[in-house]
Simulated assay, not measured.
Amino acid sequence: MQAPSKTSYDVVIVGGAMYGSSIAWWLTEQAGFDGSVLVVERDPTYEFCSTSHTNSCIRQQFSAPINIQISQFGAEFIKNFRSFMGGDERVPDITLQSFGYLYLADNEGFAATLKDAQQVQSKLGSGTMHLTRDEIQERYPFYNLEDILAGNHNLVDEGYFDGNTIFDWWKRSARERGVEYAHNEVVSMTQAPSGLVTSVTLATGEEISCGTVVNCSGPRAVETSRMAGIEVPIEPRKRYTFIFRSEEPLGHVLPLTINPSGVHMRSDGPYFMAGCPPEDDHAVAYDDFEMDHAIWEDHIWPAVAYRVPHFERAKVINSWAGHYAYNTLDQNAIVGPHPEVTNFIFANGFSGHGFQQSPAIGRGVAEWIASGAYQSIDMSPFGYDRVIENRKFVEKAVI
Rank of each mutant, 00 (worst) to 15 (best):
residue 7 T to S: 15
residue 10 D to V: 04
residue 18 M to I: 07
residue 24 A to V: 05
residue 33 F to C: 11
residue 57 C to E: 01
residue 61 Q to H: 03
residue 62 F to M: 11
residue 65 P to T: 06
residue 67 N to I: 08
residue 70 I to G: 02
residue 89 E to M: 11
residue 92 P to D: 10
residue 93 D to G: 11
residue 97 Q to Y: 13
residue 100 G to Y: 08
residue 103 Y to N: 12
residue 104 L to A: 08
residue 107 N to V: 06
residue 111 A to N: 04
residue 112 A to K: 14
residue 118 Q to W: 01
residue 119 Q to M: 13
residue 125 G to L: 11
residue 128 T to D: 02
residue 132 T to D: 10
residue 145 L to M: 05
residue 162 D to F: 07
residue 171 K to R: 15
residue 171 K to C: 08
residue 176 E to Q: 12
residue 176 E to C: 02
residue 179 V to W: 02
residue 181 Y to E: 07
residue 182 A to H: 06
residue 192 A to H: 14
residue 195 G to I: 13
residue 203 A to S: 12
residue 203 A to H: 14
residue 204 T to W: 01
residue 208 I to F: 01
residue 223 E to Q: 12
residue 230 I to V: 15
residue 239 R to Q: 08
residue 250 L to A: 05
residue 250 L to F: 06
residue 270 P to L: 03
residue 272 F to I: 08
residue 272 F to N: 11
residue 276 C to G: 07
residue 277 P to V: 14
residue 280 D to N: 14
residue 284 V to K: 09
residue 286 Y to N: 13
residue 290 E to H: 12
residue 292 D to T: 11
residue 292 D to H: 15
residue 317 I to D: 00
residue 322 G to C: 08
residue 336 G to M: 08
residue 338 H to T: 10
residue 339 P to Q: 14
residue 344 F to R: 05
residue 380 S to F: 01
residue 382 F to N: 01
residue 385 D to N: 14
residue 393 F to R: 05
residue 398 V to A: 02
